[in-house]
Amino acid sequence: MTDTPPLAPDHTAPQTNPFSGPQPDDAGRFVHLLRRFAPWLAAIGRLTRHQIRFTLLVIGAGWGTIRESLRPNSWRRPVIYEFRASLRQVVSGGFLSIVVTATLTGLMVVSQAAYWLGFAGMAQMTGSILVSVLVREISPILVGIILMGRSGMLSLTEIGMMVLGGEVRALQARGIDPFLALVMPRTFAFTLGGFTLGMIFAVVSLLMGFVIAHSTGAITTSVWTFFFNVLAAMTTWDYLIIPLKFVLVGFFVGLGSCISGLTVSSNDTMATIMPRGFARGIMLVLVVNVLFMLDF
């Protein structure tokens, strides 16, 4: 007598394992193919889910930021303090970079446009070319990149380190909502800062371009005539679209940086946070500009 119970007759029948190897029938072939490509499909799915997650986060947080900002009791004293500090950082931190970049851009674009359009006998189009190329297309992208590099990365790192260090949890323990205290004021500081720096960029680039082109003889009109030509080349839509682009670029760069910082995981380090945040910021800048390009 043994302790092993006798096997039931159906247990003695030979078992086939569908995962053991290639089978001659269709089902077996399908399983084999699935096994081969499953890791690739999983990786693609993971990546897609990850990308969609950030997009949905940005949409949700953007809506939340606007909705919360309309409530008067969202603008409490620490929130206002954070808004002012962030605005100061965004504008003063980016000012010099904006002036230098605008000077270089103006030097290249305005002088080249004036020279080549004059050469082609189309000098009357200088204003409209400058408005559509420099002010409407190039400025928002460069302002967005400078905002991202000078201030967005700072916000991202600060908030990311606060999450990893437990300071954000400590804020929550004291009843301070990190979304209200950090994300909302910083996003609006970036929005206002984006508009301010964008306007500075547009004026400085045109002005410096005029100075260079005037000194080389490519433009012979006065500065007032030059700016009058530029303004005359602007359509009614341009007066709306150009500031809106600066505002939206600032809004999304600020929001993207703060959200990327707030959603870091415990596995993240500076080496993973910063490249990811920078790539997301650049993507947001380009998406805003491309969307406007498609519609207008």
Binding site: A85, E167, L171, G175, D177
Partner: peptide
């Protein structure tokens, strides 16, 4: 959320670590 935060505001807490923001 808002009620939670308001109620937590009634608690005075001493934490041993990670409770200070170097931003301010």
């Amino acid at each position: 959320d808002r009620q939670l935060n308001a109620l937590r505001g009634r608690i005075g807490r001493i934490s041993r670590s990670s409770s200070w923001l170097n931003l301010f």
